[in-house]
Nucleic acid binder design. Structure first.
Lengths: 237, 237
DNA sequence: GTCTATATAGGGATAGAC
DNA sequence: GTCTATCCCTATATAGAC
């Protein structure tokens, strides 16, 4: 048979079969985890549900956690692409917030929903939570490198790229966790919770603590930095 | 024999034996991990080195990682105690920084050194890193609760306690990681690296980005909040 | 009887041989 | 892709200390 026929189409025939197998595994895992929990579900069950052998499963994913944690990487990669599209002169904090909004508005809703379901599962399984946090750490490193590159900062001498990335990541994480904890949460709840946390981050660190302030209804925080020129090619949403 | 004789001393005979077994396990693990790495060392080896059975090891520690990660909890608990001793009116950010300095100056140097060694091992073993991050998350929750209690803030409605705790924790983490990455690091290097990151956190988020600023030698950041009254009972170092 | 330690057996994840 | 080995961790059954 012709090699050309097999690989010509639009991503390769094999590529698409691989992608389908991969998706079948992710779907099966997501479903079984929801039904039985993360721990009780075995890799053999997942493989059987996706009609492949256990060995094949481990050829696609190195660990059980990775089967579902890949969607996280997918989201974060989209986010980094949006960040790279922001103007270089913009302050990293502004770039990060704008890029996140842009990325989340473009990502498929089912992907964000899957991410939410994974966060829920993490509450129940320490192992899954640990794997998730580890990935977040790796993605944070990538983010810091990207920021350093964009601002022409030498990471070896200046910790600021890592600090912005870490502080931003913290705020996003707090927003996600709070959304998950508040019972049911659709994608809309997720977005508003994270946005609220991002808005509050700087005022929380710089303004006097007012016990009565809540949910952004308080004295409006003074703009801490001059607004950047609105010349960005990105998607300001 | 008399019950009084057995338990009168200062913490109970059994308690001290338990503590000694525990310490023997931690020491053995720390030594074996340094010699062979985290992954290759088996729980049976650790148990044998501490002269107990594998089952006993798992009675003291639920997982292999926990054998060494308990020193982290020890440090963080000391930190929370120092934080609780700060005046309630002080801004959380100031309380956190002061409490950290106080805690680290009191903790035994060997404990901090053990912590550093663990961080190094984490670079080598994803599993250890994941477990470490998970613990940090738990400790961050405790920290947020403490801050909420001290400031009279309702965590359900106001995310700020979680935000300060998370941002502070991020900066500390960045400082630790940078210290570990910069080759050899004594406790002094650790302290200065973390302090540097803590000083830079707020200016990094609020001041314009100046690519030439480095290591704190740049325009001094304006004090973002009025300095708190120096009436704290803590150890301002 | 109660608490604590042990040995043994086994399940489940993952790596490697074939 | 099947089979096997290894390691982490758990369960059960049991024995010593007081």
């Amino acid at each position: 048979m012709s090699v050309i026929t097999m690989e010509a189409a639009d991503g390769g025939l094999r590529e698409r079969k691989k992608a389908r197998t991969r998706e079948a595994l992710v779907d099966a895992a997501l479903r079984l985890f929801a039904e039985q929990g993360f721990g009780p579900t075995t890799t053999e069950e997942i493989a059987a549900a996706a009609d492949v052998s256990q060995r094949t499963l481990f050829r696609y994913f190195p660990t059980k956690e990775d089967i579902i944690l890949d969607v996280q990487d997918e989201i974060e990669e989209a986010f980094r692409l949006k960040l790279a599209a922001r103007p270089a002169a913009e302050h990293p904090v502004d770039s990060l917030i704008t890029a996140l909004t842009a990325a989340w508005s473009e990502v498929d809703a089912s992907v964000l929903n899957a991410h939410l379901r994974i966060m829920r599962l993490s509450d129940e399984s320490p192992k899954l939570l640990a794997a998730h946090l580890q990935r977040s750490a790796v993605n944070l490193d990538l983010l810091a490198s990207l920021i350093a590159h964009r601002t022409g900062t030498d990471t070896a001498e200046d910790p600021r790229p890592e600090l912005v990335a870490a502080a931003f990541g913290s705020a996003v994480h707090v927003g996600i966790v709070r959304c998950c904890r508040s019972g049911r949460g659709g994608v809309d709840d997720l977005v508003s919770s994270v946005n609220h946390c991002l808005e509050l981050l700087i005022p929380t660190l710089t303004e006097p603590w007012d016990a009565d302030r809540r949910a952004g209804r308080g004295a409006a925080p003074r703009a801490p930095r001059p607004a950047p020129p609105a010349d960005g090619p990105g998607t300001p949403a």
